[in-house]
């Protein structure tokens, strides 16, 4: 598997660390359900998903990668620092 780092270009999966679904962190007082959603419950789609990867064997950038979990097709990647909603 290869991922397109916006800074370094396409690189082998070996260079990256995977974290999982790209979700927005709730406010501290958002309540139990919101935090349960953020830390534990998952959409876990069989299809396109937005997920966080870390280019730790490269530039150290956190990326938001859009990828298909059925085919492993990579649709795109952007820097997490810029993707923040």
């Amino acid at each position: 598997m290869r991922l397109p780092c916006p800074i370094c270009g396409e690189r082998d999966r070996r260079e990256f660390y995977y974290k999982g679904a790209a979700l927005e962190r709730p406010a501290p007082d958002a309540g139990e359900a919101a935090w349960d959603d953020y830390v534990y419950l998952r959409e876990n789609p069989a299809g396109d998903t937005r997920e966080l990867w870390y280019h730790d064997g490269g530039c150290g950038a956190w990326l938001v990668v859009t990828r298909n979990t059925l085919t492993h097709a990579v649709i795109g990647a952007e820097l997490a620092s810029e993707a923040k909603a």
Binding site: M1, Y17, Y18, A46, E51, T69
Partner: peptide
């Protein structure tokens, strides 16, 4: 170590 339903690895 990545989400997948492909039943195949790398």
């Amino acid at each position: 170590m990545y989400a997948s339903y492909a039943a195949r690895g790398n």
